[in-house]
Simulated scan of single mutants.
Amino acid sequence: MASHSNDTAAADAATSPALAIIVPTLDEGLTIEATLRALAPLAARGVEVIVVDGGSQDATRRLAAPLASRLAASERGRARQMNAGARLTRAGTLLFLHADTRLPEGADHLVAEALAGRHRWGRFDIRLSGRHPMLAVIASAMNLRSRLTGIATGDQALFMTRAAFEAVGGFPDQPLMEDIEISRHLKRQSPPACLHARVTSSGRRWENHGVWRTVRLMWRLRWDYWRGTPVARLAKAYRDAR
């Protein structure tokens, strides 16, 4: 019996992907196809690409279905969707990617190298696409702040070992700042690997709602979060401001 169990475990390990990329979506019909096509070289190397939709009313699911390794449905909420995606895979490493973000070339190798040593989790530097000249300044500030604090944002494509993910209980079930909170817990596992390679994320949030207005909003929300303001109240403030 023990031999059979060992053989089964070995077979599972042999067939499990080394890396799974989990993409939570909600009405991302304008971006999801390009995002998944950009991941095709990684998928060809055996990376599992899982799209977890939170109830899109547009063409997101139809466009994602032929391009993802798996397409799943979940309760709405980025944290819930990412946790649901993690449950669908046996991959030893998990990477959580926003639907409007592109990974750098060879991201799978970069992640594997980063986690081969003492690091159990990490993130990429970020570049914001768009026309406004302040987007480059905002991205640089995000990267510097992350290095100084050891806290990462979801825009920076968080990655971690499955063991680290499970040790902290996954993403907290909250409607906002789930990336900040999981970073706090992951810091107890190890310092983050802060990769200089850059993901490219859309600057549409800043441009659509006003760069300075969005910067002020995000800093105010972060400040209120650190002061202990209930997350539900912060999420409402974020929705009302959009």
Rank of each mutant, 00 (worst) to 15 (best):
V168S: 07
A139K: 04
A73E: 12
Y238D: 05
M134G: 10
R242A: 07
R239K: 10
T153S: 04
E75V: 12
Q57Y: 01
T229Y: 00
L148F: 05
L195H: 05
A72K: 09
E181A: 13
H185P: 00
L30D: 14
T8E: 08
Q156E: 03
D58S: 02
T161W: 02
T89P: 06
A163L: 07
D12G: 07
L158D: 00
V23R: 03
W121L: 14
M82L: 13
A73V: 11
I151P: 01
H4K: 13
F96I: 13
R239E: 14
G85T: 04
R184P: 00
H4A: 15
R216H: 12
V231E: 06
G169M: 11
R80H: 11
S16G: 05
T200W: 02
A38E: 11
R45T: 02
G54R: 01
H196Q: 07
A64M: 07
T60N: 01
K236C: 03
V47Y: 00
N6A: 07
M218Y: 15
A193G: 05
L19N: 08
R90G: 15
G170H: 02
D224M: 05
G92K: 11
S140C: 04
A65I: 05
Y238P: 07
M160Y: 02
K187V: 06
F159N: 06
P175A: 04
M1Y: 09
A163D: 14
R184W: 02
S69I: 06
A237I: 08
P66Y: 04
E105I: 14
Q57G: 14
T35D: 03
G150E: 05
A99Y: 05
P133E: 01
R242F: 03
A235I: 06
I138M: 05
A79Y: 10
T35N: 13
S16P: 03
V137A: 13
H98D: 15
H4N: 13
D125C: 12
Q156I: 06
W206Y: 14
R45V: 04
R37I: 08
L217R: 15
F171I: 08
P41M: 03
R118C: 06
S3L: 13
S74R: 09
A13E: 08
P104E: 10
N6R: 10
A38H: 05
L42M: 12
W226N: 13
I126H: 01
L115D: 01
L39G: 01
N83D: 02
R204Y: 10
R204F: 09
D7Y: 01
G210D: 14
G122N: 05
G122T: 04
L144V: 14
F159V: 10
F124C: 06
P191K: 15
V211L: 08
G77A: 09
T149L: 08
R233N: 11
H109I: 14
G77Y: 02
D58G: 03
V199A: 10
I138K: 00
R87G: 15
R90D: 15
L103K: 07
A99S: 15
R76D: 14
H4Q: 11
P66I: 11
L217W: 08
F165E: 01
A18T: 11
L71S: 12
R45C: 04
R118H: 06
V49W: 01
Y238G: 03
L176N: 04
W121Q: 09
A86M: 14
A232F: 01
